[in-house]
């Protein structure tokens, strides 16, 4: 659990993070959004003390994050940034092993961890481990950057626009990888992004920042249904609202018993995907199957239309 308690950071008398308080539950993904210069990066960097707050306190699992030397704190918190920041003079394997090496892990344990992470990110350890960062594609470099952040099995992972430089297809893939990895390790993730689709896809909770303040902090559905300010409304986009609602709910949640014709959809896809499939194929209902492929019912177009409406 991360407790951010009345945190303020001022530069030259200007509060770039202004009295922010929020509690981040363990094993969840919290996404921070907001316009450029609203203080997202500064807030994130105060968690691992790359920036020292002017006032306020941040507690990790109850302990003030200033109760240990900053470099020791940072070894316990994963940190992944845009442009990955891989060490160009070190191989991929050495890059991933950065924090374990600082912590003095035994070599076999380190090697095993590197191989595990590379495999998890679908990079063949024998092929990619000995390579240098410049021998990788942008997407591969980015995955290695995240793998490096996870190498010492941190409870908390901070990510600052980690997928900002990726093309849409690789980005979608990276997001799904991240979700899988978050499930696998149970990491608490705080992620900054400019991409609202990314925010809705990943977040358990979204924090919206505007001029140094967190103007709304809650589950994605709440942001769509009850935006607290015009800024939040604009950020979500009027025309996008119904689709955002459907995008954060699983197809499984809209299933009813019955049968339907045509191509089925898997229960773990979003209701937005289901709506798209219905509209594109011109059907009124769609069969739904479990992840294993067993039929479990159908979704009706009329159900989805009702679910996309403001009041339910």
């Amino acid at each position: 659990m991360i407790e951010i308690d009345a945190i303020t950071k001022t530069y030259d008398e200007i509060a770039v993070v202004d009295d922010v308080s929020m509690v981040i539950e363990p094993r969840t993904i919290t996404v921070v959004v907001g316009t450029s210069g609203s203080g997202k990066t500064t807030l994130l960097r105060m968690i691992n003390r790359l920036v020292e707050p002017t006032s306020g306190e941040i507690r990790l699992d109850g302990d003030d994050n200033r109760s240990m030397p900053a470099h020791e704190l940072r070894r316990r918190i994963g940190y992944a940034i845009q442009g990955h920041g891989l060490f160009p003079h070190r191989t991929v394997a050495q890059n991933i092993a950065t924090v374990p090496r600082l912590l003095g892990w035994e070599k076999p344990r380190m090697d095993a961890k590197v191989a595990e992470l590379l495999t998890l990110f679908q990079l063949e350890p024998e092929i990619f481990g000995p390579r240098y960062p410049h021998q990788l594609s942008g997407g591969q470099q980015q995955r290695v950057g995240v793998a490096r952040a996870l190498a010492a099995e941190p409870n908390v992972l901070l990510m600052d626009e980690p997928f900002g430089a990726l093309d849409p297809i690789i980005r979608a893939k990276a997001q799904d990888d991240l979700l899988a990895i978050q499930k696998h390790f149970g990491t608490t993730i705080v992620l900054v992004t400019h991409d609202m689709n990314e925010a809705f896809h990943l977040a358990n909770k979204i924090a919206v920042m505007d001029k140094g303040k967190v103007v709304q902090y809650g589950p994605p559905v709440e942001l769509v249904r009850a935006p607290t300010t015009d800024f939040v409304k604009t950020l979500i986009g009027d025309a996008e609202r119904p689709f955002r609602l459907l995008s954060v709910a699983n197809a499984a949640a809209a299933v009813e018993p019955g049968e339907a014709e045509g191509e089925p959809i898997q229960e773990d896809r979003s209701q937005q995907d289901a709506l798209a499939a219905l509209l594109w194929s011109g059907r009124d209902a769609l069969p739904v199957v479990s992840v294993g492929g067993k039929p479990i019912g159908r979704i009706k177009l009329s159900t989805l239309l009702k679910r996309a409406a403001r009041l339910q």
């Binding site: 020791e72 940072r74 940190y79 920041g85 060490f87 600082l102 950057g145 490096r148």
Partner: peptide, 18 residues
């Protein structure tokens, strides 16, 4: 030095000497 690399070194918990 590339900013992102220095940032990553700090973020990984390297001391000044390291």
């Amino acid at each position: 030095l590339p900013r992102s690399v220095m940032e990553a070194a700090r973020g990984a918990g390297m001391t000044g000497f390291q």
